[in-house]
Design a protein around this nucleic acid. Structure first.
Lengths: 226, 226
DNA sequence: CTTCAACCGATACGGTGTATTGATCAATAC
DNA sequence: GTATTGATCAATACACCGTATCGGTTGAAG
């Protein structure tokens, strides 16, 4: 049947015009809420009230969207400090903090070359703030700190997820995996490991991260001083 | 139509009975050949000449298969050495070498808690070989080296893939991304970065990895000596 | 007014992980 | 010896994915 008079559509608020930024923001919101697996082009499109294919006007591929998400988060990472050591430390801490706010960052970070503007800006700021230290030391030092941060953040987030997955009320990793690990250690196959777990230090995530970072910074400092 | 006489099947060689090890080996072969994305339960099953659902008799979920793959590779990582420094260094180098043989390792490593027998055995061997250094130092030191290795390996493999993707004949990263980076640097927005790329050291992957590792080991040594 | 081009939404395709169903076959109960 | 149950395993089915393709709509150009 033909509708002769189409009622004027209730002037729903004109949606802000779609663009890359809005697209990426929607994807980040989804990832923050439900993890990276929840970021499908269909869901992002639905969140924007748009057909899935519309997105291909702004990105060529899903991987590009992931790159854009990563670079967007990098805008939050702004190292500060007066000497090179403070700068590298703040780079590490800021990256870690970003990963706390966006856990999915742990899945992406370090996994592909990052050449987005914000990432480059961060790298530029770090290098600019490193002062007069010679490049032969600065370049590998920055690379090393980045590598450390990537690995440390990944491990920390992985543990956090494991804790959460094994009952949200259980607080300690040891408690979460206790039964399995206790059984395994009871076999006596891993004496040194069992000893370390049982009588080693019980470090918080903060302490573990910072101690490792200071190790690395100490090593860099030794090179710089000579 | 009924087939009254079914010809004796040509005695094709009885396939070895399926088990977890064979399953995981098949998955690793697929991943080695075509990357982690090529590891689908259907393809693994096909490689084993079996229906996809058969696999669920040996694994509960695809994630479990990935964990098993990772732990299997960890069997190749056997640190050696006489003092703690050699041990940590060989742990790092062995992990890196494993990632060279199985590039997909870069995608998985550090991404989830590793509690498989081979991984635990590696950890145990490291701790056992660390000698008399006190646990308060040893535990974070091992954690820091692991974190560094995870990040360094990820970056290295990511770069390697980028090189390969941008024309297999092009050798250098700078050449591969040259045009884009040159254009970007020409804007003058990232002077410090541009300077570092242009007049900084051009380190090989080996050198970058080792220099960063020695930074870290130096820092640990300083703590141990005091 | 016609024609063409660009756009854009819907449909479609080949894949994924896995739940469910249905068939086959061995072991047990009568 | 037959019937029944229970376990095993392959096939089908489902919901979802990324994205290629296509068909209709619309705005611009002649």
């Amino acid at each position: 049947m033909v509708v002769w008079e189409r009622p004027e559509p209730p002037d729903r608020p004109v949606p802000a015009p779609l663009n890359r930024a809005r697209l990426v923001r929607a994807a980040i919101q989804l990832a923050d809420a439900d993890g990276l697996d929840a970021v499908s082009l269909r869901k992002v499109a639905a969140a924007l009230d748009v057909g899935p294919m519309r997105l291909y006007g702004y990105i060529a591929t899903k991987e590009e969207l992931l790159d854009l998400m990563l670079d967007t988060v990098y805008a939050e990472i702004q190292p500060t400090g007066d000497d090179w050591r403070q700068v590298l430390r703040s780079l590490a801490e800021a990256t870690r903090q970003a990963a706390h706010q966006h856990e999915w960052l742990a899945d992406l970070i370090g996994g592909r070359p990052q050449l987005g503007p914000n990432t480059l800006a961060t790298g530029n700021a770090v290098l600019a703030a490193m002062g007069s230290v010679d490049l032969d030391t600065v370049v590998p030092a920055v690379a090393a700190v980045r590598a450390y941060v990537v690995g440390a953040v990944r491990r920390e987030i992985a543990e956090r997820r494991a804790e959460r997955a094994s009952g949200m009320d259980i607080k300690q990793f040891q408690t979460a995996y206790g039964p399995y690990l206790e059984r395994t250690f009871a076999t006596g196959r891993f004496p040194a490991l069992a000893m370390a777990v049982r009588s080693g230090p019980h470090l918080s995530a903060d302490e573990t991260f910072r101690i490792g970072l200071e190790f690395l910074l100490d090593g860099i400092e030794a090179r710089i001083s000579n």
